[in-house]
Design a protein around this nucleic acid. Structure first.
Lengths: 269, 269
DNA sequence: TAGTGGTCTAGACCACTCC
DNA sequence: GAGTGGTCTAGACCACTAA
């Protein structure tokens, strides 16, 4: 139930990329209309629902209460709830299906797999990815890892090395580093093809965005061996930081990709 | 003014990436509610406004009529117009500024320059791009160009070769092919740094999206010479098709980029 | 102060899915 | 038929900009 002064609403909660983003940050809900730190009601509803998602109140694939139920519970109009739900849907955190309901987005379904995998076969095949883990270790975080994942000096990480194939073409060798404290026991698990669904279902960590930096490099000796290609071959290096719902960097992934038969697809809008 | 049967509305007009996209295509406005080819009113308003943009009824940077004026003119509610304007804004075709008005998006302003330029300096500098044209010719379209730009066998193209620097670092050599009939006289112009604003203002062609395919390649002799780097150096090849408001491919651009001091930034959501 | 976009509401009705 | 999301409307009020 929303307090009419909105003091009960989170003021500095996790926020995401929205145009209506206002300035005032430290000044809470600010008495309301007229305040410089104005924060629209639907934005506050967005943050409350986002928090529930971050707290794993609803599991991936699960149906949310209907718009009307949420509106009644929160004491706002259905239109306001709708606007918040639409924003969460635009951020790929929810999926809405007319006549059925609103569901927590799932990293497992066919279209979501390609949300974070931009490598495509040149011949426009479907190209489902497969993976083979070549090693897992837990170790003290390196300086690079601490910098990328925003870790303290004593932090530990789990490093996963694996090779991947796209459409049956072996083309990626990568090293994945995650903070050990966020993913306890991950080194002992059978790792699925899509790590992000494991993060969500087993550890309650939902990947919201990822920033990738691409460079062309010469294939190193280690990757050359793993990918069965000559060292020195031009390869695409993808350096990814994955960010979760609470805006924390939770994974660093360095991939080296051969692009003889695949390419990286980027759609600009 | 909208006819109440909506027969006056374009049925098969240019459309873009919207979730509410329906199936029925050939069946016009379909008697209305109940029809399987249901097409929401705001979607029809979207298409009408999109057509005006494609027809250059309003110039880049120009202010549109207010929501109320458009609603009155089209005979729909202000909320419906708003929904269409919001969708056009999400598609980067309009810019809305509270208290000022709604404007046609401009490829010239500071943030729009980077909408289609994903190369960034490694040190997070601002990195405004500069360009130097090394050659322009008009010629018969090659088989590749005809395929990429969807041209007939007798079509002609204009080819622009240039090198670019990002943040004063020379790193890109590219060839740009455009259909000669769409851009008459372009070979004789002084070309600006941002070609897409020229396309819009002089030729009424607005680039709406672009598809880029990235690969790692070895630097060829010609590019090595232009970029003053050793042949064989790993380089990022960006193969771009730019699409205009009418969903036509109107430019093919093949760029070769040295990535020693810059990277390609891709944000996944 | 006038004009613009932005928010919020309440209600009616439509389209879709599933029982 | 019941329940869900999707559309459309009308109106009130707020926030922002510029004159």
């Amino acid at each position: 139930m929303l307090d009419t002064t909105f003091d009960a609403l989170p003021a500095g909660g996790a926020r995401r990329r929205h145009a209506m983003e206002r300035s005032g940050e430290g000044q809470a809900g600010a008495g309301r209309p007229g305040g410089v730190g104005f924060r629209p009601l639907y934005r506050q509803v967005y943050d409350m629902l986002l928090k529930r998602l971050a707290d794993a109140v609803w599991q991936p694939g699960q149906m949310l209460p209907s718009e009307g139920q949420l509106a009644a519970e929160l004491g706002v109009s259905q239109g306001t709830v709708r606007k918040a739900l639409d924003a969460l849907t635009a951020d790929s955190l929810l999926v809405r299906r007319q006549g059925r309901g609103t569901f927590v987005a799932d990293h497992d379904d066919k279209q979501s797999v390609f949300r974070f995998l931009k490598l495509r076969p040149d011949d426009d095949g479907v190209g489902m990815p497969t993976s083979r883990v070549t090693g897992i270790v837990e170790a003290a975080a390196s300086a690079d890892e601490r910098g990328r994942l925003d870790l303290v000096r004593t932090a530990r990480v789990v490093r996963i090395a694996r090779v991947r194939a796209v459409d049956a073409r072996l083309c990626v060798a990568e090293t994945i580093s995650v903070p050990a404290n966020l993913f306890p026991g991950i080194a002992t698990l059978e790792l699925p093809n899509t790590l992000y669904s494991l993060y969500a279902t087993r550890y309650g960590i939902t990947i919201a965005t990822a920033n990738e930096r691409l460079k062309a490099v010469a294939l190193g000796a280690r990757e050359a061996d793993l990918l069965q290609a000559p060292a020195g071959t031009p390869a695409l290096e993808i350096d990814r930081i994955a960010i979760d719902l609470e805006e924390r960097p939770v994974e660093w992934r360095l991939s080296t990709c051969l692009t003889q038969e695949v390419h990286y697809l980027s759609v600009l809008r």
